[in-house]
Simulated scan of single mutants.
Amino acid sequence: MEKYILEQDIPVVYVAAREVPEGIGAAILEMEACLKADAGNRIFYGVSGCRNGEMFYWAAANEARPGEAEQLGCRRFTIPAGRYLAKTVRNFREDIQQIKRTFEELLDQPGLQTGGLCVEIYINDDDVRCLVQIDDAVGRQS
Protein backbone atom coordinates (compact mmCIF):
# COMPACT_ATOMS: atom_id res chain seq x y z
CA MET A 1 0.00 0.00 0.00
CA GLU A 2 1.10 3.52 -0.67
CA LYS A 3 -0.10 7.07 -0.29
CA TYR A 4 -1.18 8.50 -3.62
CA ILE A 5 -1.95 12.13 -4.43
CA LEU A 6 -4.42 12.82 -7.20
CA GLU A 7 -3.08 16.22 -8.27
CA GLN A 8 -6.19 17.52 -10.00
CA ASP A 9 -9.90 16.85 -10.27
CA ILE A 10 -10.86 14.41 -13.03
CA PRO A 11 -14.11 15.10 -14.88
CA VAL A 12 -15.68 11.84 -16.03
CA VAL A 13 -18.77 10.61 -17.83
CA TYR A 14 -20.38 7.57 -16.27
CA VAL A 15 -23.08 4.93 -16.28
CA ALA A 16 -24.47 3.74 -12.95
CA ALA A 17 -24.79 0.04 -12.18
CA ARG A 18 -28.41 -0.85 -11.51
CA GLU A 19 -27.39 -3.34 -8.79
CA VAL A 20 -24.16 -3.77 -6.87
CA PRO A 21 -22.25 -6.00 -7.35
CA GLU A 22 -24.36 -7.94 -9.87
CA GLY A 23 -24.79 -5.04 -12.31
CA ILE A 24 -21.18 -3.86 -12.47
CA GLY A 25 -20.31 -5.84 -15.61
CA ALA A 26 -23.41 -4.56 -17.41
CA ALA A 27 -22.58 -0.96 -16.46
CA ILE A 28 -19.07 -1.35 -17.89
CA LEU A 29 -20.47 -2.71 -21.16
CA GLU A 30 -23.02 0.12 -21.30
CA MET A 31 -20.28 2.70 -20.73
CA GLU A 32 -18.21 1.21 -23.55
CA ALA A 33 -21.27 1.22 -25.83
CA CYS A 34 -21.95 4.90 -25.04
CA LEU A 35 -18.44 5.82 -26.10
CA LYS A 36 -18.60 3.74 -29.28
CA ALA A 37 -15.57 4.43 -31.46
CA ASP A 38 -14.42 7.27 -29.20
CA ALA A 39 -13.18 4.93 -26.45
CA GLY A 40 -9.63 4.43 -27.71
CA ASN A 41 -7.79 7.30 -26.06
CA ARG A 42 -9.65 7.26 -22.76
CA ILE A 43 -8.74 6.36 -19.24
CA PHE A 44 -11.40 4.18 -17.64
CA TYR A 45 -12.45 4.39 -14.00
CA GLY A 46 -14.72 2.69 -11.53
CA VAL A 47 -16.19 4.88 -8.80
CA SER A 48 -17.98 3.33 -5.85
CA GLY A 49 -19.12 4.09 -2.36
CA CYS A 50 -22.15 4.27 -0.15
CA ARG A 51 -24.80 7.00 -0.30
CA ASN A 52 -27.89 7.04 1.93
CA GLY A 53 -27.07 3.51 3.07
CA GLU A 54 -26.95 2.15 -0.49
CA MET A 55 -23.87 0.92 -2.34
CA PHE A 56 -23.27 2.42 -5.78
CA TYR A 57 -20.89 1.73 -8.65
CA TRP A 58 -20.27 3.95 -11.66
CA ALA A 59 -18.40 2.75 -14.75
CA ALA A 60 -16.65 5.88 -15.98
CA ALA A 61 -14.23 7.36 -18.51
CA ASN A 62 -12.49 10.71 -18.65
CA GLU A 63 -14.58 13.45 -20.22
CA ALA A 64 -13.08 14.40 -23.58
CA ARG A 65 -14.90 17.74 -23.93
CA PRO A 66 -17.38 19.88 -21.99
CA GLY A 67 -21.00 18.84 -22.55
CA GLU A 68 -20.01 15.37 -23.67
CA ALA A 69 -22.05 13.55 -21.01
CA GLU A 70 -25.28 15.05 -22.30
CA GLN A 71 -24.36 14.26 -25.91
CA LEU A 72 -23.67 10.63 -25.00
CA GLY A 73 -26.71 10.22 -22.77
CA CYS A 74 -24.48 9.64 -19.74
CA ARG A 75 -24.06 11.42 -16.43
CA ARG A 76 -21.13 13.60 -15.37
CA PHE A 77 -19.08 13.53 -12.16
CA THR A 78 -15.76 14.89 -10.96
CA ILE A 79 -13.38 12.57 -9.15
CA PRO A 80 -11.90 14.88 -6.52
CA ALA A 81 -8.22 15.67 -6.26
CA GLY A 82 -6.67 14.83 -2.94
CA ARG A 83 -4.94 12.22 -0.84
CA TYR A 84 -5.69 8.54 -1.31
CA LEU A 85 -4.42 5.24 -0.04
CA ALA A 86 -3.57 3.07 -3.05
CA LYS A 87 -2.60 -0.39 -4.17
CA THR A 88 -2.07 -1.60 -7.73
CA VAL A 89 -3.53 -4.93 -8.82
CA ARG A 90 -1.52 -6.56 -11.60
CA ASN A 91 -3.15 -8.91 -14.13
CA PHE A 92 -6.60 -8.40 -12.58
CA ARG A 93 -8.29 -10.29 -15.43
CA GLU A 94 -6.72 -13.54 -14.18
CA ASP A 95 -8.81 -13.21 -10.99
CA ILE A 96 -11.29 -10.31 -11.05
CA GLN A 97 -11.97 -10.86 -7.32
CA GLN A 98 -8.48 -9.41 -6.67
CA ILE A 99 -10.05 -5.97 -6.99
CA LYS A 100 -12.66 -6.70 -4.31
CA ARG A 101 -10.05 -8.17 -1.96
CA THR A 102 -7.76 -5.19 -2.49
CA PHE A 103 -10.53 -2.73 -1.62
CA GLU A 104 -11.41 -4.77 1.48
CA GLU A 105 -7.76 -4.52 2.54
CA LEU A 106 -7.61 -0.77 1.85
CA LEU A 107 -10.91 -0.08 3.61
CA ASP A 108 -9.61 -1.85 6.71
CA GLN A 109 -6.90 0.80 7.20
CA PRO A 110 -7.15 3.69 9.69
CA GLY A 111 -7.45 7.34 8.68
CA LEU A 112 -9.88 7.00 5.79
CA GLN A 113 -12.34 9.73 4.92
CA THR A 114 -15.80 8.98 6.31
CA GLY A 115 -18.11 8.40 3.34
CA GLY A 116 -15.13 8.67 0.99
CA LEU A 117 -15.00 7.25 -2.50
CA CYS A 118 -13.33 4.13 -3.79
CA VAL A 119 -11.78 4.70 -7.22
CA GLU A 120 -10.41 2.23 -9.75
CA ILE A 121 -8.02 3.65 -12.35
CA TYR A 122 -7.48 1.25 -15.23
CA ILE A 123 -3.82 1.84 -16.01
CA ASN A 124 -3.85 -0.52 -19.00
CA ASP A 125 -5.70 -3.68 -20.10
CA ASP A 126 -4.16 -5.75 -17.30
CA ASP A 127 -3.55 -3.48 -14.31
CA VAL A 128 -5.77 -1.35 -12.09
CA ARG A 129 -4.86 1.08 -9.33
CA CYS A 130 -7.32 0.93 -6.42
CA LEU A 131 -7.72 4.11 -4.35
CA VAL A 132 -9.62 5.07 -1.20
CA GLN A 133 -9.85 8.62 0.07
CA ILE A 134 -7.78 9.51 3.14
CA ASP A 135 -9.18 11.89 5.73
CA ASP A 136 -7.55 15.18 4.78
CA ALA A 137 -6.61 16.10 8.36
CA VAL A 138 -4.93 12.71 8.85
CA GLY A 139 -3.32 12.82 5.40
CA ARG A 140 -1.61 16.16 6.11
CA GLN A 141 0.04 14.77 9.24
CA SER A 142 1.59 11.79 7.43
Rank of each mutant, 00 (worst) to 15 (best):
V138K: 12
L106N: 04
M1R: 10
D108S: 07
G115K: 09
G139P: 08
V47W: 10
K100D: 03
C118D: 14
C74M: 12
E94H: 11
R140G: 02
G49I: 11
A16F: 04
G111D: 09
L6D: 02
G115Q: 15
M55L: 15
V89W: 15
K87E: 02
L35R: 10
I123Q: 09
N52H: 11
F44T: 06
N124D: 14
F103N: 08
N62H: 13
V47E: 00
I99D: 07
G49V: 13
D9Y: 08
L117S: 15
A61N: 04
P11Q: 11
Q109N: 00
G139I: 00
R65V: 04
I123H: 03
G73Y: 05
D126M: 10
R42A: 02
T114G: 08
T114K: 07
V132F: 07
G25D: 10
V13F: 08
R101W: 15
A69W: 07
A37D: 15
T78I: 04
A59E: 04
E54A: 15
I96F: 12
G40Y: 02
R129V: 08
Q141C: 13
V12S: 07
R101M: 11
R76M: 09
I79Y: 07
E19G: 06
N41L: 12
I121R: 00
T114V: 05
F92Y: 15
R93I: 04
V119S: 05
G40F: 02
L131H: 01
D38Q: 10
G73I: 03
E32Y: 00
C74S: 10
A64H: 05
P21S: 10
G46A: 14
A59P: 06
V89H: 12
A86E: 05
V132G: 03
K87N: 06
G139T: 01
V15A: 00
L112D: 02
G46Q: 09
E2C: 13
F103H: 14
F44G: 02
G53R: 05
E2P: 01
P110W: 01
E30Y: 00
N124P: 13
Q133V: 12
P66A: 10
G73C: 02
Q141W: 15
E30S: 07
C130T: 01
R129T: 13
R75T: 08
A86Q: 01
P80D: 11
T102M: 01
L6G: 03
G23Q: 11
T102K: 07
Q98Y: 07
D108I: 03
Q109A: 07
D135Q: 08
C118Y: 10
E7P: 03
A16G: 06
L131N: 09
M1T: 11
D95H: 14
I79R: 08
V15G: 05
A86Y: 01
E19A: 13
E2A: 09
A16S: 00
P66H: 13
I134T: 05
F92R: 03
G23L: 09
D95A: 14
R93K: 06
R83T: 14
R65C: 02
Q97R: 14
L107A: 10
F56Y: 15
L112W: 04
E2D: 02
D38W: 03
A137C: 09
V89G: 11
E104C: 08
V20H: 10
R75H: 09
Q98L: 14
R101P: 05
P66N: 04
P21E: 12
L117D: 12
Y14S: 11
T88K: 15
E32K: 05
